[in-house]
Design a protein around this nucleic acid. Sequence first.
DNA 1: CTGTTAGCGCTTTCAT
DNA 2: ATGAAAGCGCTAACAG
Lengths: 341, 341
Amino acid sequence: MVTIYDIAKKAGVSPMTVSRVINRSPLIKESTRMKVEQVLREMDYLPNKQARSLTSRETGLVSLVIPDISNPFFTNVVRGAEDKALQLGYQLILGNTDENKDKEAKYTEMLMSTRVDGVLIVPASDESEDNMKKLVKRGIPFVYVDRTLDAIPADSVKGDNYNTTRLLVQHLIQLGHKRIAFINGPRYLSNTRERALAFRETMGLHELETNPVYMFETHLKKDSMEEIIDKWASLQSVERPTAILAANNFIGVNTLRALQALHLQVPDDVAVACFDDPDIIPDYNPFLTVAKQPAYDMGYLGMQLLIERIQGTAPASHRKIILPAEIVIRRSTLRADLNSS
Amino acid sequence: MVTIYDIAKKAGVSPMTVSRVINRSPLIKESTRMKVEQVLREMDYLPNKQARSLTSRETGLVSLVIPDISNPFFTNVVRGAEDKALQLGYQLILGNTDENKDKEAKYTEMLMSTRVDGVLIVPASDESEDNMKKLVKRGIPFVYVDRTLDAIPADSVKGDNYNTTRLLVQHLIQLGHKRIAFINGPRYLSNTRERALAFRETMGLHELETNPVYMFETHLKKDSMEEIIDKWASLQSVERPTAILAANNFIGVNTLRALQALHLQVPDDVAVACFDDPDIIPDYNPFLTVAKQPAYDMGYLGMQLLIERIQGTAPASHRKIILPAEIVIRRSTLRADLNSS
DNA sequence: CTGTTAGCGCTTTCAT
DNA sequence: ATGAAAGCGCTAACAG
């Protein structure tokens, strides 16, 4: 491996001079700079980041810890984060937690050992506190994306859960629905709690009761279908909802599949809307009414906040960025006889 | 930061003994091991990977260089690669090239500087040769996924492009189509060349001519729709194809959108099939007939080959793994009047 | 403007 | 079974 010593010898200077040339120090004579740069090129030198970070205390690595890259929402978060990281010269280490705090613990441990400069994280649950505390203790900056832990404050970028839920519920109410179910994620996540609150309050504002049996809770992973079918079966047929709001894209899709298995038509028998688009590709056969959250921007901005924090250019106080979603109304909530509205 | 020196002092031993305990050296007296481990826990010690890799010449980092994480095919590749990497104790650095060899060059440069232990790569183009050569020169092991560069041999995991294309074409031919268009990716990619060859040969086998005007070429990125519309318009109406085979999911979806813009019905006016599913979520509204390649397995196996290569447990000769695809026939090729078949 | 010295945290090598 | 010395590749701090 070519080191600055090899370069130094060949160029007839000291290693320190080589280091200065590499780091563009201004106090180098033009002629020696030229010569060293020449040798650098000849020998195809590439600095050793490991060695460099041993003294500089910076690795140029940032980590992105998310539940699951195969959820299109997070896919876009990753792309945004990666674009910003590259732009600012950082490399991105990826980790999937599968909503599991132990897996998250394992990752945070590895990250700390790798001495990443910072972490962009979607916490697996409120119990992620312990993991965050360790980051704090070691002085590793981090930024929340999509979900936050109130007990451990930090910069954050998230969706406007309250207002977005309100808009979705109002859309369903305006279509004439009164019995609306909300299939939510687990209550140990900040964003699902915010959505649940907004759901209840919006129903109340419209003088609709939030029947507790309409408030389901499931997980946010890929395979929630069976659970949804069971819940549905547990309801008295007279009180079954005419509309369902799903707390994320996986639940939305699994709701559709569950209803299909139950031989119910969407939207004629039941209307369905959800958070986050299940499709990642420009619409070609869009069906679900969704609240499209700006996932790419969340990743992009989150990475920006993080790197500002790393580089010490961030203000002392924690910044909380809240991004609005776009409500996209599609066929899953539009009955043919209402299409004109 | 807690170092082995701090531990050594507190435990009343030498730093070397601490190092031995951490690395589970067998020649340590049980009693001293216990004491050191006790202090290790008390002080919440975490080894510094940077320092370690300076001597060990291993970083525990592997890199995955792909065109675009937001293509569902690559999303699954990433998930597979990440799962295997975690399982074997490696961390994954992600990079998107956007099919651009200069961006790829930038990444490979960063990777070499970071001294990653190995690289899993989907080369951006045949011109990626220069980038691969640099990896070879620096002795960094790499494994191809999905595409290969014949000029620079290495382990590889890819789809069975020839037979998969053949099956898709035969499906269309069996439905009675004779004028079949093939919208392929750029010819500077190994997999699209293989697909083009298979297309021509399969057509030939069925005594159908491959009209050159039916062989389009576009890029594999998200926004190929306009190009497809233009190509279509450039055809004489009498000779327009009755079926289209698209070389990847983006092209497949954009073909659908283009046909929609042209007011053509799929599959009644034109049948469409493509490589790789555009949906990442368990089917809820499946429409496109696709060849589902085992993307997750490609990433998983690719990572396994790579790590075996890194750890020196791989055979000297390069391994070429070829995985079959599953043809999933859906509505985009099934005309209502043929549904019974 | 350039060089020398020391040290980042750890491990390899050789002693004891 | 344990320790001392040296060095991995680089840079901060000081010297000249």
